[in-house]
Amino acid sequence: MRNFDYVAPTSLAEAVQAFGQAGGRARALAGGTDIIDQIRIGRRTPELLIDTKRVPEMMVLEDDGAGGLRIGAGVPLSRVRDHASVRAAYPALATAAGLVGAIQIQNRATLGGNVGNAAPSGDTIPPLMVLDATVVIAGPRGTREEPVANVFAGPGQLTIQPDECLVEFRVPAPRANTSSYYVRFIPRAEMDIAVVGVGVSMMLNGGGQVEDVSIALASVAPTPVAATAAQDVLRGQTLTRELAREAGERAEEATSPISDVRGSADYRRELTKVLTRRAVAACAGQLGVSLS
């Protein structure tokens, strides 16, 4: 592996200073499950790695005081996967955290890294999007909070500046009668990258109609995308099998897939329809509404 420098700041102020001084020559090192291999094969060539795991602000995993959750960018996915309130309140996120790689990967990999790597296939990204998560971004010009959905510029590329870093994710309190679900298709049982992934968050009203719904797709476009036409089909309606099917059909409109080793563009369009239908039905099932 080519050489680089390494620092491990122990406060956010120190980390911000390190990113600020290095400008574009540094990258964050969280679990290293993407970046170390990318350096080895020459896909990324940082001169400095800034370790995020000793920055206390990036290691929080706690209630935000308003019923929501703060998840530091450097917290390992195994802790997200096993966290009682993630499992209870944000099942899509718990599922996705438990799908990334295998146990050894989950013990190291982080949300900061999954988002920071900006792969269209990142499994935790559709759940973060449909749960309306925001991310706190720090840099020399101060700190700001953005919807997770806004930080992706393209494959491997974030909209944040090279001298900025992700600090923590904030997942708002779940609303009443709301559930979420994430499903992906891979050709094997474990250890593969999503051919297509679908996250759904849905709220039903007292009459059993869809009060609100959010759907996001992985691996079907240069960035993870919201399936807005599918959402529009569902909102305000009473859920039926036919409606779930129609949502699946309309989800395709959000896709602009490529063909690669994992699947052709046509296959990805078809999978988008099927997985969206199934994810909507499964999410309804978690809310006690059976579509079968």
Partner: peptide, 18 residues
Amino acid sequence: TVEVDGVTINSCCALGVE
């Protein structure tokens, strides 16, 4: 695979300096 602070990790995907 090795254990670091009680959990298993892939030591090829971690740096010694960490």
